[in-house]
Design a protein around this nucleic acid. Sequence first.
DNA 1: CCAGCAAATACTCATTTCGAGCATTTGATC
DNA 2: GATCAAATGCTCGAAATGAGTATTTGCTGG
Lengths: 304, 304
Amino acid sequence: MTDAGLSAELVAVVMAVDRGRPFVVASGEPPALPAGPLRADEESLQAGVREFAREHMGFELGYVEQLYTFADLGRSTDGRRVISISYLGLTRAEISGSERPTDWSALYDLLPWEDRRHLESGTGSDRLGEEIEAALQRWSGDDGDRLERCRFLFGYDERVWRPDLALQRYELLWETGLVAESPCAAKISALTAGPMVNDHRRILATGLSRLRAKLQYRPVVFELMPEVFTLGELQETVEAIAGQSVHKQNFRRAVEVQHELVEPTGDVSHDTGGRPAKLYRFRRSVRQERDQVGTKLPIPRAAR
Amino acid sequence: MTDAGLSAELVAVVMAVDRGRPFVVASGEPPALPAGPLRADEESLQAGVREFAREHMGFELGYVEQLYTFADLGRSTDGRRVISISYLGLTRAEISGSERPTDWSALYDLLPWEDRRHLESGTGSDRLGEEIEAALQRWSGDDGDRLERCRFLFGYDERVWRPDLALQRYELLWETGLVAESPCAAKISALTAGPMVNDHRRILATGLSRLRAKLQYRPVVFELMPEVFTLGELQETVEAIAGQSVHKQNFRRAVEVQHELVEPTGDVSHDTGGRPAKLYRFRRSVRQERDQVGTKLPIPRAAR
DNA sequence: CCAGCAAATACTCATTTCGAGCATTTGATC
DNA sequence: GATCAAATGCTCGAAATGAGTATTTGCTGG
C-alpha cells in the first residue's frame, strides 16, 4: 500500500580508529550522520551503502552491517514519517590529527560518557561521571526501579560497567533529559555540546553498542586495522572502541590462542618506545569462516 | 524523497512452543507469514506489531524485537520495491494438537533440517540429512571454499553443528537450489514441501537464527512458557527452539546458578511420568534488568 | 659505552566455568 | 512391593579466565 507521505532513506554510521582515537563520519552544524534517499535502482541496500561511501566519502567500507530501521513517528522535526534504515560501516581511513577532513568527528565528543579509558588506573577526576551520577540520582528519587536501572547501566554500587550497553545508556540519558535531543532537556545538558540532527545520536549509539557487542565474538576489529599491525596497536584499537582498557597479557594470549587468526609478517616495528614489536597481518583466509562464527577477543563484558 | 513505487510493510515471525513442538504463524497456500502495510497513524512499529497480533491473531505478544529490513529489488514476484520490516514475536499461545487453528504451522515443517533432536542419541536414520549432504557434495565439487562452507555450516567432518547458523544454512541451501524458492530450484527440492510466499522462508530463518542466538544470553525463553512450569518443561522448550537436546543436569545447574532468575512456587507437578517436579515461575522483577543484560542458558553453541 | 626506561613478550597460578557422568530420590503403576 | 521414569543431587577433570610476576630488548641521554 503506497502511502503518499512515505519516504525512505539510508543512514550510515561509519567508523574508523586512528591511533587509539575513534572517529565517525558526521558533519555540519548541528552534526549529522551521512544519509541519503533510498534510490529506486539500487539492487541491494548493502551495496547501496558501499556505493554511497565510495562516492560521497571517497573510500571503501571493509565491513557493512544493517543496524536498525527507525520508523516511528515524531522522529524528525517536521511531522512526516521517514523510514531510516541504518547501517554500520567500518573502514581503515587514516584520520590524522592535523588535517583531518571536516566530516570526521571524534566519536567520544558525541558520546563523551562512553569513553572510560582515562579513569581506569587510579585517580582520574571524573567530573562528567560525577555529574551524571548526581543527575541520575536526582531523577531517580526514591523510585527503586529507576535506581536499579541507573546502577545497572552505569555500573554504580559495585556493579560492572558493560561497554555494549551504550544504547541503553543513551536512552536512559534521553529520558532523563540529559542529552540535548531530549524533549525535556530544558537546562544546559553539559553532557553533549549541542543536539545532533533528528535522532542521529541515538543511531550513533546503536552503532556503537552493536560494534562493541560484535567485537567480542567476531573478528571485526581487523576492518579497522591497517594491513600490518602490532599486537599493541590491535589492542589499542579494541580499547578505543570498547572505551576501556584490557589486560595486556591476556589480550595477546586470546589472540594467539585463536588458531591462525593472525600471522606474523616477520618484520618488527620500532616506533614503540620500548622493545620492538612483531608485526602481524590478519589472515583473510579465515575471514569467511570466522565472519559467520565466533572469534573471541576479550573485551571485558565486565569491568571494575 | 518520496518514491512513487515505494511501499512498506510489516512482516511478523510469531512463534510459540507447545509441549516441545515449536509453531509459527503462517497460513495459506503457499504459506505466508502475517504481513500488513505500514499504517500512517502508527506511532511506533513495535506497537504496530503488537496491535496487529492482537487484532488479527487474537493474542498478546510477550516479546517483540525488530529483526531485519528487507528492501532489495527482486524480492517479490512483481518487480516493485517493497520494504519489509520484519519482527520477531514470542507468545505463550497454546496450540494443542487437535483443533489447532489453521494459521499455526509447525516450524520444522517449514525448515525441516533445523530439527536435530531425533538423531541425537544413537541411530536415527537421517534420510534428510544424508540427502542434503549428498546434494551439497555435488554442488561443491572440487571447490575448496564451497566444501569448507558446507562443512562449517552443517557440521560435517567433526565440526560442530551450531543451531544459530540457521539463516546461513538457509542461504546456502538457497544458493544451491535446494529450497523451493531458489531461482535455480529446477528439480523437486525434497527438502521443502513447496515454496513460501516471496522470501518469507528467509525471513523465518532470520527469526529462528536470532531467537536461537538470543536464547543463549537473554531470558527470552520465558516468553514462551506458561506462568508456572517445571525445569523439565523449560528445558524442553529450549530444546525445541534450539533443535537439539542439552545435558539435563547442566541445564538445571545453569538455571539455578543464575541468581533469582526463577523461584519455586512451592507446588509440584505430577504429570511427569516419574518423580514429581517442582514448579517454578519466572521472576518478572528481574526481567527489566536481565532483558538488557545477559542470562546464560546453556544451548550448546556446539554440539557433537 | 653504560644505566635506565618503556614496552613487548614469557610464564605462573588460583578461580570459575563447562561438559559429562554416576548416584540417589520419589511418586505412579502394575 | 518390585519396577519404572523422571527429577534431583553430587563429583570430577578439562578448559577458560582474571590477575600477577618476571624477563627480554632496543632506544636514549649522559
